[in-house]
Amino acid sequence: MIQGLCQDISTENIFHKNDNTLIDWLEKSAEEYKLNYLLAHAEDGVIWGRFDRNKLTTAEQVFYQPNFDVNFPKLRLQTLQQCRIFGEQGEILLWRTDRGWKSRLVQNNSNVEHIKEVQILWGTQKEKGKNGQDGEKDGFTLLSDGSQGLKHAVPLTVISSYFNQEKKKLYRPVHLVINHYINYDEYTGIGQIFLSRLVSLELKKVNDEKAYS
């Protein structure tokens, strides 16, 4: 099953300490496999990104000091631990090993059973800049969560009507869709998840009856 769903992707064009080769590799991969979003985990934080016309934009390029009270990390080889670029068509996972970078591709396969999971992401309100600048810019929306004010910038346009206008009733409209692939033991018939991938980001309005399904 795994062989029919996954394939290795060459990372030979990603050169040590050369961030431009990383960006070039990501943009070419996203173009080839029709992928839309980036979610990376680095030593200094989480990085969101999006691909528009085969060009990558990350959150720190859109929201930054002094206009916005944020300090999002930059996508750098030096601090990157793993990175996923994903969309409806598939996902590429890039990760650091002791021997360099490894990568694998997962594409849609109707012959492999999967379970859809929807994870609710932080963000109960849209943030503004220090001087009232719009928190919706270049396909990103700057969000904060509850009284703690945890902030991130998702690569989606989230209009105000998606939030609950009653501050005491917190609602998080941005959801991350994940597919979990199942394999069944040929002797026992017991199924287990053997692989998961990111699929898409979606929005659910506060009054949508399906928002909690």
Rank of each mutant, 00 (worst) to 15 (best):
F72I: 06
I193N: 13
T79I: 06
G49R: 03
Q89I: 11
G129Y: 02
S196N: 10
Q81H: 06
I182S: 00
Q133S: 01
K205I: 01
S10K: 03
T57E: 08
N20C: 10
S213F: 14
F15G: 04
Y33S: 07
Q65M: 06
I190E: 14
S29I: 07
V206Q: 09
R53K: 14
V46N: 07
A30I: 03
C83R: 00
L121G: 06
E202P: 06
T157N: 11
Y64G: 00
Y181F: 15
V106E: 04
P173N: 08
G146V: 02
K116M: 12
D44N: 15
K204P: 04
R99I: 10
R197W: 07
H114K: 15
L80I: 09
P73F: 05
G129P: 02
L77R: 03
L94S: 02
L201H: 10
G87K: 09
V199N: 03
N108H: 12
E113H: 15
G149I: 06
K205C: 04
A211H: 11
G129E: 01
N20E: 13
I193P: 12
L195T: 08
G135I: 05
F15R: 13
F194N: 02
R76C: 14
T21Y: 07
L80D: 04
S196P: 04
K130W: 05
